[in-house]
């Protein structure tokens, strides 16, 4: 008869489920242990999944901020209002995501899931870029950390409708007024302290910061290229008539030197070298821009900009050359 199995002794095997031999008891001896381990592992996997999801969204939003910022044409203390609006609304979304993320990456879990938190690098890139466009300086890790922490707190309180304005105001306040942040050091700004001190925040590691700044050089290169082509002037220098205004070429050189002088972080030599190489290339591209400006800039009529609205009229030839 089919479906009737015999063991090696020729005795019919039981059909009703697994073998019911004394071993069953032994197996049960380990089952509770594995069950409790399963619960622990499930908790870990669920947490990681939540982090990965939020992280992906934060990365996408940060990239959108960077795209908006790439539409800026000159370095000045206020971003154009339409761009500021785009940035602020993205920041508000990111703040909410950061707030959902925060409880999962407290204490020991901060580094446990560090590899799933690449979004923070991207976010640092966006924030440092925005800061550069406003101030023409590099924001420090010490000044940037409170910004991220505040955003996280604001995101947690974002249930209210007014919160979005609060995020905007706060983010720009903090980035602009770096001096106050350093002076205060750790303490949380008094205004938010009573209600929000116990909310978990996100700590920015030095690696998040450094790798974010590495990527910043790429964005600065892109910005230098487009802004030079479209405004006919090297970005930087500001409105004040310094003896010799500092341009983005100089800033890129500073950043390049900055990374060359830093000791290679021994934790991740490979990634460091790769990023450094990309930075070198960006620096050289901007260098070339500076050179082109000096050599050909004199041939360009003062105040001339390519007329993009009207299409190819008399300016067309020159514009090609400059781009």
């Amino acid at each position: 008869m089919s479906g009737f199995k015999r063991d090696w002794n020729g005795n019919a095997k039981r059909q009703d489920g697994p073998k019911a031999v004394p071993r069953q008891v032994v197996r049960n001896a380990y089952t509770p242990m594995f069950e409790s381990i399963r619960d622990e592992l499930d908790e870990h996997h669920d947490r990681r999944e939540r982090i990965v999801k939020a992280s992906r969204d934060i990365t996408a939003l940060s990239k959108k901020i960077i795209f908006s910022l790439q539409r800026v044409r000159r370095i000045e203390s206020q971003l154009p209002s339409n761009i500021q609006f785009e940035v602020d609304s993205r920041l508000a979304e990111i703040a909410k995501l950061l707030a959902t993320l925060a409880p999962d990456i407290q204490g020991i879990n901060r580094y446990r899931y560090a590899r799933s938190l690449m979004c923070l690098e991207e976010f640092v890139e966006a924030l440092t870029f925005a800061h550069y466009l406003r101030t023409q300086t590099l924001i420090s890790h010490a000044d940037l950390s409170p910004v991220v922490e505040d955003l996280t707190r604001k995101g947690a309180g974002a249930a209210g409708s007014a919160s979005e304005d609060a995020v905007m105001a706060d983010a720009s306040d903090d980035t602009a007024g770096t001096a106050t942040a350093t002076a205060e050091g750790k303490p949380i700004p008094p205004a938010t302290a009573p209600a929000t001190t116990e909310l978990p925040t996100i700590s920015l590691t030095h690696d998040d910061y450094l790798y974010g700044v590495f990527d910043l050089t790429g964005e600065m290169m892109r910005f230098a290229t487009t802004s030079t082509a479209l405004t006919g002037a090297m970005a930087g220098g500001g409105d004040d008539k310094d003896a010799e205004p500092r341009t983005i070429v100089h800033d890129m050189h500073e950043l390049g030197t900055f990374f060359e002088m830093l000791p290679v972080s021994s934790g991740n030599k490979f990634q460091w070298e790769k990023k450094l190489e990309v930075t070198r290339q960006s620096v050289q591209k901007v260098e070339r821009l500076g050179y082109d400006r000096i050599i050909r800039g004199s041939e360009r009529p003062k105040g001339w900009v390519p007329d993009l609205s009207a299409g190819g009229d008399q300016g067309g030839g020159q514009s090609d050359e400059l781009e």
């Binding site: 590099l138 030095h206 310094d242 950043l255 830093l262 000791p263």
Partner: peptide, 24 residues
């Protein structure tokens, strides 16, 4: 006009990386 990179920023990061290396 403030410099692009605050010298203190460099020193802080350098110290951090050196600390990390010696821990390793």
């Amino acid at each position: 006009m403030p410099p692009m990179i605050d010298p203190a920023l460099f020193d802080q990061l350098k110290t951090k990386i050196e600390e990390d290396t010696s821990i390793r």
